[in-house]
Design a protein around this nucleic acid. Structure first.
Lengths: 252, 252
DNA sequence: GATAAGCTTTCCACTATGCGAAAAGTAAGA
DNA sequence: TCTTACTTTTCGCATAGTGGAAAGCTTATC
């Protein structure tokens, strides 16, 4: 009886199996075999198969016709699209993002921390973006970007600790970093993949909580004094935008 | 025994309950009450509550702290982001979309048909997009756009019939429309909400199947001969891009 | 403070649903 | 064709999930 309580609090086991498999499919290769999913999840072959088949019927998972392997499915686009379309944060910010893009020529992103990852909820691609460096990715570890650092700096200590524990950084950030990111009006970071620099500011709601990061990503200009000027110019654009929506962002 | 087969083929009931509730949350208001979800789904209060609680633990659903109402959750962003990041269609098209945007000044979108709706999988916002008319929506009924018409025209008859049955159009499209959309090299449609026009072309894979629509949306220029010229110019850009990725799009 | 509305938790009986083990089926490669 | 690797199906069982009911809790409003 007492042993049942934790499991009751844990929710329905079948839903837990389903969400576990979805999470596993969201990491690793695009198509994964039934047997590898079963082994990694600890579920039996038959159970794994049943759950995947059920998810496939709802288009949250698809099965490759030839190889019979499984991957995430397009039904997720529809669900996440519905989520995005209803999010006041994005609705409020949307009209301004083009203007910021035009004023900065940079790619503008709205990011949130979801399960320890930075998820890009909206993006307006900037000018002068070359074909090679157009960033398509939808989420990344927080330490990889200025936006992630802003969000981490304002997150609860538990989330910070988790992120540090799972980070592959040779030099993990310190508590002083956290404080700095929390207090700085904006954060700048060089993106290793593209060599671009990113400026990020926190987006606060009416109660003062940081609910997102607003960032601008552009190519590195000439080295020199113009750097700091450009960064400040961009940061001011971002901050002004964040301020504009702040009073409209309630707890909802 | 024979009566059990359909239900076995139906997959796990609990997963079906969960995906049903997710689908219901993706329509209607952002936050919905437990009792209305229970009534509309036909599940009991207790069952509905248990499923929602389980989905909330996986961040696929969130509950409003004050009102206790439920809505879709940010975990969906992460899952759909993982889906998008692995989709060869988007990876192949991504480098070209900025160029098409720059050549046309229009907003470029990659769309797919998911459960009878047009879902926008990728978007590069164009120039001269005004604050008022920046389109944020992630999906819409197919008849509302040129991209939707392209996808409908190439879809199976069953999908076409479903779309016609659920359409609110005063004048539903005919079989001749379907044939026209299927055969035309490009489709043009005036978007009612924004008053913009959209040009869309099919994206085919190596086997010749239409797997997506590529579209450009811009403001209506002056009326006159320039219309057709502009439309053709845009369509050519789109077609060239679709051709570039075609041979790399296998069944996968 | 009282009330109303709605959610959350608890309990219980029931059963059908979900489980695992094993067999059968399928596709690809040698 | 045979073999291998993997998926899909079958079957018996027990437990996980269900519905119903009621009590308790929370929030908002008057």
């Amino acid at each position: 009886m007492g042993l049942e309580l934790p499991e009751q609090k844990g929710g329905l086991g079948t839903v837990r199996n389903a969400t576990l498999l979805l999470r596993m499919l969201s990491g690793g290769e695009r198509f994964q075999t039934l047997s590898s999913l079963a082994e990694a999840s600890g579920l039996s072959l038959a159970t794994t198969h049943r759950v995947l088949r059920s998810l496939a019927q709802a288009d949250l998972v698809v099965q490759h016709p030839q190889s019979s392997r499984y991957s995430l499915g397009p039904g997720l686009l529809r669900l996440s699209g519905a989520y995005r379309d209803r999010l006041p944060l994005l609705q409020l910010l949307a009209p301004y993002l083009v203007e910021v893009r035009d004023n900065t020529k940079a790619t503008i992103e709205v990011s949130q921390l979801v399960q320890g990852l930075v998820v890009i909820a909206d993006r307006v691609t900037g000018e002068n973006v070359t074909r090679v460096f157009r960033d398509l990715t939808s989420f990344h570890p927080p330490l990889r970007s200025a936006a992630g650092r802003v969000l981490l700096g304002h997150a609860e200590l538990e989330i910070w600790s988790d992120a540090i524990a799972t980070a592959e950084a040779a030099a993990p950030p310190t508590a002083a970093d956290r404080q700095r990111w929390a207090e700085a009006p904006y954060v700048v970071h060089l993106l290793e993949d593209s060599g671009e620099f990113q400026v990020a500011v926190p987006v606060r709601d009416r109660a003062g909580r940081v609910v997102a990061a607003l960032s601008a990503t552009a190519r590195v200009p000439f080295l020199g004094e113009q750097d700091a000027r450009m960064e400040e110019h961009i940061a001011r654009q971002l901050q002004r935008t964040a301020e504009m929506v702040r009073n409209s962002l309630t707890d909802e």
